[in-house]
């Protein structure tokens, strides 16, 4: 028997429909005027991803674009600009046109912290605006399957006797802030090791190079049985069934830390909103339709990310999160910059 025919999970690709058919489908199912999306300029939509290809942002942006095409039938071109914790991506994005067809797919938490801590000539609100969230997930502390640590209590107790090594994606990151805050509150000493990206950070925890890892919760979930979640920086665990009912950090440590989350969000240049508000509205509306589409929910699940993390937060909510994250960055500036 061939490998092909044996594949139980083999997924048939959704046939690509023509632009007109896709628009019609969108119009029929969601009550949008076909001329609505047609008002959007022809040509490709350019998406800047301020991290490398193959990372979480790339995964999420592609899941989204796959379904978004139904509502806004334009080709989406991805460009990756990793470097300097996202600074390179933001600055290159700002060098591009202030156009509704020029978007940035961001990870609000780490990137707002980066913008605050590094010397980047980009101001949230003045230069760049997050117009639509796509997902929100809390930060988590987790270990590899072979780790001797079974609970967060054990990890904290150990960290009171010796510095416990924690792999993090980068220093300007909500997960890093969470670990620093936890250390401050409990007297535990966490030695934070920035591995530069989610994949190597996870690898360090899974292979036992470090004692534990602090990353957005979707990361350990995508590694399945290779990872064990010890604690979550949130008021409650949003996905207990996928994390073996992991407790929140505050429950275990008796602390009162604020929820530490990060949202993926679409952003545009502020000038694009000022110059073309009606076109930005088309973007927002088609994005919201995408987020509600069962096909998108299925695409998110297929990529290994819990559908519970889908968050259709609007511009106001996204900007509010950015403001709160900025406050956190200011609070922990010295520890995050080595100054």
């Amino acid at each position: 028997m061939s490998v092909c025919t044996k594949m139980p999970y083999r997924k048939k690709l959704v046939a690509k429909t023509s632009c007109a058919a896709a628009m019609l489908l969108g119009a029929l199912s969601l009550g949008i005027s076909p001329s609505f999306a047609q008002d959007f300029p022809e040509g490709n939509i350019s998406v800047t991803i301020p991290t490398g290809e193959g990372g979480g942002a790339d995964r999420d942006a592609r899941s989204f674009a796959q379904v978004w095409n139904k509502y806004l039938p334009r080709n989406v071109e991805f460009s990756y600009y990793p470097g300097a914790a996202g600074q390179v991506g933001y600055e290159f994005y700002m060098r591009g046109d202030a156009s509704p067809s020029n978007l940035l797919f961001s990870n609000i938490g780490p990137e707002v912290i980066m913008l605050e801590l590094q010397d980047v000539p980009v101001e949230i609100g003045e230069d760049i605006v997050y117009i639509q969230k796509t997902s929100t997930e809390p930060m988590a502390i987790w270990v590899g399957a072979n780790s001797p640590f079974e609970t967060l209590e054990q990890l904290i107790e150990e960290a009171k006797t010796r510095p416990v090594t924690i792999s993090v994606s980068r220093l300007p990151h909500p997960a890093t802030i969470g670990m620093l805050a936890l250390g401050e509150a409990t007297g535990a000493e966490f030695n934070l090791i920035p591995f530069g990206g989610g994949n190597p950070t996870a690898m360090a925890a899974i292979t036992g190079e470090v004692d534990a890892s602090a990353l957005p919760l979707a990361n350990p979930i995508t590694f399945g049985e290779e990872a064990r979640v010890l604690g979550i920086f949130a008021d409650e665990n949003p996905v207990p069934d996928q994390t073996n009912d992991a407790p929140t950090v505050n429950e275990v440590a008796g602390t009162d830390l604020p929820p530490l989350t990060s949202s993926r969000a679409w952003a545009v240049q502020a000038d694009a909103i000022a110059e073309n508000p009606e076109l930005i509205e088309i973007l927002k509306q088609t994005m919201r339709q995408t987020l509600e589409d069962p096909e998108y929910i299925e695409a998110v699940r297929a990529s290994g990310v819990p559908a519970e993390f889908i968050d259709p937060g609007n511009q106001e909510e996204a900007m509010q999160e950015a403001a709160e994250t900025r406050e956190l960055a200011i609070q922990y500036r010295d520890l995050l910059t080595g100054e």
């Binding site: 999970y9 997924k11 690709l13 995964r59 592609r62 899941s63 796959q66 590694f223 399945g224 049985e225 290779e226 699940r301 297929a302 990529s303 290994g304």
Partner: peptide, 10 residues
Amino acid sequence: QFHGVPFGPR
């Protein structure tokens, strides 16, 4: 990921 295929031990 795009095709929903699990990777790693799964």
